[in-house]
Simulated scan of single mutants.
Amino acid sequence: MQSVAADEPKNHVDPSSMRECNEVVDVPHRFVPWDEGSTLWGVDRASLGECWRLNHAKGLIIKALTK
């Protein structure tokens, strides 16, 4: 005879939400021209935004699973 808990649906978490954030962009130890610096800054800001959204999603998942 199976228990009631075995009949409950299992929670599914998308594996993409379990990944880690990207690393911080490395700035070379030399003079960085303005155009290269602004490109590095843009890549870093995009990574930061993606990381914020990923961590927000993780928080929503944790809240949903702990209800």
Rank of each mutant, 00 (worst) to 15 (best):
20 E>F: 02
51 C>N: 06
26 D>A: 12
37 G>H: 04
12 H>G: 08
6 A>I: 06
1 M>F: 11
51 C>G: 08
43 V>G: 01
54 L>H: 07
48 L>H: 07
9 P>H: 03
40 L>S: 04
57 A>S: 11
51 C>W: 00
54 L>I: 10
30 R>W: 00
54 L>F: 03
34 W>K: 15
10 K>R: 15
25 V>H: 02
22 N>M: 09
27 V>N: 04
52 W>V: 15
19 R>E: 11
12 H>I: 12
22 N>P: 05
55 N>F: 01
33 P>M: 04
45 R>Q: 12
49 G>A: 06
31 F>L: 11
19 R>C: 05
9 P>N: 04
33 P>W: 01
63 K>I: 02
12 H>S: 10
27 V>Q: 04
59 G>P: 00
48 L>N: 06
17 S>Y: 09
45 R>A: 11
40 L>D: 01
23 E>T: 10
27 V>S: 03
6 A>V: 08
67 K>T: 11
18 M>W: 01
6 A>Y: 02
33 P>E: 07
55 N>I: 03
55 N>V: 05
14 D>E: 10
53 R>K: 11
14 D>Y: 01
10 K>Y: 05
50 E>C: 03
24 V>H: 11
51 C>R: 02
22 N>C: 07
14 D>P: 03
1 M>V: 13
19 R>A: 09
28 P>N: 05
32 V>G: 00
64 A>N: 13
38 S>G: 01
7 D>T: 15
51 C>M: 02
40 L>N: 03
22 N>E: 13
44 D>K: 02
25 V>M: 06
34 W>G: 08
8 E>R: 14
20 E>W: 01
24 V>T: 14
48 L>D: 06
47 S>M: 08
57 A>G: 09
56 H>I: 02
58 K>Q: 15
9 P>K: 05
23 E>P: 10
17 S>R: 06
55 N>C: 06
63 K>S: 12
45 R>I: 05
24 V>D: 09
26 D>I: 06
59 G>T: 06
60 L>F: 02
41 W>L: 15
47 S>Q: 12
12 H>W: 09
12 H>V: 14
26 D>S: 10
7 D>M: 13
28 P>I: 05
21 C>L: 04
33 P>R: 08
44 D>A: 07
36 E>S: 04
42 G>K: 07
30 R>M: 08
1 M>P: 12
11 N>Q: 11
1 M>T: 14
48 L>W: 02
61 I>N: 03
54 L>W: 03
58 K>M: 06
13 V>H: 04
60 L>Q: 15
10 K>N: 10
59 G>S: 09
25 V>C: 05
36 E>R: 03
9 P>G: 06
34 W>N: 12
2 Q>D: 10
2 Q>S: 10
65 L>S: 09
15 P>G: 06
32 V>W: 00
21 C>H: 04
56 H>C: 08
44 D>C: 05
48 L>A: 12
6 A>C: 07
15 P>F: 01
21 C>W: 01
32 V>R: 00
18 M>E: 11
60 L>R: 15
60 L>Y: 04
42 G>Q: 07
28 P>L: 03
59 G>K: 08
8 E>F: 04
25 V>I: 13
6 A>H: 07
36 E>D: 08
26 D>P: 02
31 F>R: 14
5 A>E: 13
21 C>R: 04
20 E>L: 05
64 A>Q: 14
32 V>Q: 01
61 I>E: 05
